[in-house]
Design a binder for these strands. Structure first.
Length: 844
RNA sequence: GCCGGCGUGGCGAAAUGGCAGACGCAAGGGACUUAAAAUCCCUUUUCGCGAAAGCGGAGUGCGGGUUCGAGUCCCGCCGCCGGCACCA
């Protein structure tokens, strides 16, 4: 677009208002205790998932969610809420460090530069963030409290009796280190040689690192772990009270993976060792024809017979060397080896062979299973391959081929015969418990959270090692800041880069610092809390601000609306909920859940319908759109494209469309004079709206207001277009119409609304008007047009008085010539009248 | 394989069980202009009949069903997208 000629001078007034908003602190939210705090106002906390400030800058996909929250933030301010709408930076993590290593610059410098770029990009869109509350996870004033929260975890345990996190002081056992919520364990972990770090399971995709796509191998290492599994049940239960998409709740439930069953104790025949298996189908115990231990199971060593030892050892070595990728690839074919040992089935004394196989995982249940081939697909495949016996113990209601894993009636099962699956489960579990050879048990797929990274650019642990034991630093020693190092490259071994800072590592004569750092998730686990009280030097969040901003009478979640991408559906949201619950249990917070309402915005695709990426060259940046069409057009198009939650492709033609709409709004108020200067339109007059105009105006107020609640911004914008189309050719044009439209438009296109409001000489600012309220009585016409259908097909139209009786409408329909024609010789069976909508004449 | 979500014009999309396609894009025609841009007006789901106003038929991925009436509810398929993937 030519720079000389624009349909309206957005390039002049947009920067003007942006500077004005920053300079006047227009969107500052007052905190409890501030001089200008008004406690009578209801609060509204609306939050975006804060970005990772990459070197590439924002693209239009980021801006979608941010625009939605900004519109709602502005809307709620106009409705009299005290609105908390903050922004910050999730700035620790791998990409910054990789970039730093590549370019030789310190990540602190590149991070600062990226943040400055992101901030100016966001300000150019005109977002109404309270910039006084900006935080970065890399700021020592921030991560001091991330470390403090780690100390809370370290100094707490989960008391199963109270089902709560409590101070470790209440633990009466001999070894507190065995129950802390933050603990050290020797774990087989995902070691990535190229990145020089260990990764969480979630950061490994198809056996490769999510960042960079490098191969990942398993090796045992000493790691910090967080005991999130203790909260599995609470994390499931807590979902019930949240206004989240059901799909996301389900994703979390599946991730936690609760399953109910029983542990059964088998005895090994020769040595008498007890082997516990976990099963969700204890009712099939009579059908167990063999048993499988995980190759890593500690008993394998003991029970393997000399004759089988060679095969077993070879298999175990093969399994151990497999990467995760190999393992999934080999999943198609079952493999395993007989140990030579036998176990005794406690329910019938039967002697069954014990095998090992890699489809049994050490990390789930007890690492051992009883195999019931007819009633489990995996066991069935295994039995087929190795010719192991099968026995049916559940009768399905209809005969099936192969295996059957559904519910039915127990058969060939002694005292269980004839019982339904549910009854049989209860009966056998009680039987096992009586004899002390088993018990009911609940298992979860969720694993504890691997919390350490062998990298430089992350929060150091507030931990020192002394005589081989870990010890927490005191709160007064926080923050623990990374030393300034010229060489922060990975060592190429699992030894973290911080180990190279010898002076820093040496804490005292006898103690050395922990050299691992925390994962990127750490800082984002609690940033929404810091936003409530970002300057607080005494506490991670003050009690007053927490109670006000996070408080909600009767509802569990504190943040009123949280918008972000689905990619964080499980990990970030689960980790944040976990930390929140711990802090809540320990009495530091007032709400049990962080986020009351969650909405996922859909992805914005490139103009080619493909996912935006640098390699495809289809990335659209907000900067380019703002340059050509302005920030208001960008905002409006982001919302006009379609429903927020939906995936949709970008179209510059679409941007032009909303840009034309804004130009029409501009010309509702302005016209060009002889010299080509914009002046207030001569068509404007202080006259009342016609009834038709009033109807459109009030319908627009109603529609926009309702659509705000449903986040249906696309249809709200459509309605404002209808409004504009109604008035654009009106002369005289009632000034009143703009007093209605501009406040409605101001959350969407704040610069334009503000500029016109000012030029028209209206009082105050458009954005500080109170939100318009529609007058229902102006919406209805005295006459309404009804469609008249015969057997569901429209045959005629009828104009009747708004309050016409059903009888009168039916009579009019029956006497319509067109209806009579359509009815022909048929008999009218009945007539359905829907007042204000239609009439349907039913003919046989 | 299992679990979610989505299928509506040339395109993005609207539609408390009540007139399918609002609004926008694109396309075509017209007005204004020396000309263009911008702006404004008209047409635009599709097929048939008609010079036209209009008239008639079909139509929301496919096949059934419930209902006076289904894009919307129910059952069974197909396709696309996302998540999980030996979790006993």
């Amino acid at each position: 677009m030519s720079t000389q000629r624009r349909p309206f001078p957005f390039h002049e007034f947009e920067p003007k208002w942006q500077e004005y908003w920053v300079a006047t602190g227009a969107f500052r939210a007052a905190n409890p205790g501030d001089a200008d705090f008004d406690g009578s106002k209801p609060k509204y906390y609306i939050l975006d998932m804060f970005p990772y400030p990459s070197g590439d800058g924002l693209h239009v996909g980021h801006v979608e969610g941010y625009t939605a929250t900004d519109i709602l933030a502005r809307f709620h301010r106009m409705q009299g809420f005290n609105v908390l709408h903050p922004m910050g930076w999730d700035a620790f993590g791998l990409p910054a460090e990789q970039y730093a290593i590549k370019t030789g610059q310190h990540p602190r410098e590149t991070t600062a530069r990226n943040i400055a770029n992101f901030r100016s990009q966001l300000q150019a869109v005109g977002f109404s963030y309270d910039w006084d509350r900006e935080v970065s996870t890399t700021d020592p004033g921030y991560f001091k409290w991330t470390q403090w929260i780690f100390l809370q975890l370290y100094n707490a345990w989960f008391n199963p009796a109270t089902r709560k996190a409590e101070s470790i002081a209440t633990y009466k056992g001999a070894d507190p280190d065995s129950v802390r919520l933050a603990y050290v364990a020797e774990m087989p972990v995902n070691w990535c040689p190229q990145l020089g770090t260990v990764l969480a399971n979630e950061e490994v995709v198809d056996g490769k690192s999510e960042v960079g796509g490098f191969p990942v191998e398993r090796r045992p290492l000493r790691q910090w772990m967080l005991r999130i599994t203790a909260f599995a049940e609470r994390l499931i239960e807590g979902l019930d009270g949240l206004d989240w998409p059901e799909g996301i709740k389900l994703l979390q439930r599946n991730w936690i993976g609760r399953s109910e069953g029983a542990v059964v104790v088998f005895r090994e025949e020769a040595g008498g060792a007890e082997i516990e298996v976990f099963t969700t189908r204890p009712d099939t115990l009579f059908g167990a024809t063999y048993m499988i231990l995980s190759p890593e199971h500690p008993l394998v060593e003991k029970i393997t017979t000399d004759a089988q030892r060679g095969d077993i050892d070879a298999y175990r070595v093969a399994v151990a060397s497999k990467s995760d990728l190999d393992r999934t690839e080999l999943n198609k074919e079952k493999s395993g080896v007989f140990t030579g040992a036998y176990a005794i089935n406690p329910v019938n004394g039967e002697r069954i062979p014990i095998w090992i196989a890699d489809y049994v995982l050490m990390g789930y249940g007890t690492g051992a299973i009883m195999a019931v081939p007819v009633h489990d697909e995996r066991d069935f495949e295994f039995a087929q391959k190795f010719g192991l016996p099968v026995r049916e113990v559940v009768k399905p209601s209809e005969a099936v081929d192969g295996f059957f894993s559904g519910d039915g009636v127990a058969v060939n099962s002694g005292f269980l015969d004839g019982l339904s699956t549910a009854e049989a489960k209860r009966s056998i579990t009680a039987w096992l418990e009586e004899r002390n050879i088993g018990r009911g048990m609940v298992n979860y797929k969720l694993r504890d959270w691997l919390f350490s990274r062998q990298r430089y650019w992350g929060e150091p642990f507030p931990i020192v090692w002394e005589g081989g034991r870990h010890r927490a630093l005191s709160e007064t020693e926080l923050p623990v800041v990374q030393p300034d190092m010229d060489d922060f490259k990975p060592t190429g071994t699992p030894e973290p880069p911080l180990s190279k800072a010898v002076d820093w590592v040496r804490y005292s004569e006898r103690a050395e610092r922990e050299t691992n750092t925390m994962p990127q998730w750490a800082g984002s686990c609690w940033y929404y809390l810091r936003f409530c009280d970002p300057e607080n030097g005494m506490r991670f969040v003050g009690e007053g601000p927490d109670r006000y901003w996070m408080g909600r009478s009767g509802q569990p979640g504190g943040v009123d609306l949280y918008i972000g991408g689905t990619e964080h559906a499980v990990l970030h949201l689960l980790y944040a909920r976990f930390w929140h619950k711990v802090l809540f249990d320990l009495g530091h917070l007032t709400t049990p859940e962080p986020f009351q309402r969650l909405v996922n915005q859909g992805m914005i695709l490139g103009p080619d319908g493909q996912k935006m990426s640098k390699s495809r060259g289809n990335v659209i940046t907000p900067d380019a759109v703002i340059e050509d069409y302005g920030a208001d057009s960008l905002r409006l198009y982001e919302m006009f494209m379609g429903p927020l939650e939906q995936m949709k492709p970008w179209s510059m033609k679409g941007v032009e469309g909303v840009h034309r709409f804004l130009a029409r709004v501009w010309r509702l108020a302005m016209e060009e004079d002889q010299e080509g200067e914009w002046v207030v339109s001569s068509a404007l007059a202080d006259v009342p709206m016609t009834p038709a105009q009033a109807r459109v105006a009030h319908a627009t107020i109603k529609k926009v207001t309702e659509d705000m609640r449903g986040l249906a911004f696309n249809t709200a914008i459509s309605q404002m277009m209808v409004f504009t189309n109604e008035f654009v050719n009106a002369s005289p044009r009632p000034l009143e119409s703009l007093k209605i439209l501009l406040p409605l438009l101001s959350p969407f296109a704040p610069h334009l609304a503000e500029e016109l409001w000012q030029r028209l000489g209206f009082e105050g600012a458009a954005s500080s008007q109170s939100w318009p309220v529609h007058n229902e009585s102006l919406l209805v016409d005295n006459e309404v047009e009804l469609a008249v259908q015969v057997n569901g097909k429209v045959r005629d139209r009828l104009v009747v008085a708004r309050d016409a009786s059903k009888e009168a409408i039916e009579e009019a329909a029956r006497s319509s010539v067109k209806v009579l024609e359509a009815v022909g010789g048929g008999a009218i069976v009945k007539v359905i009248v829907v007042p204000g909508k239609l009439v349907n004449v039913v003919v046989k």
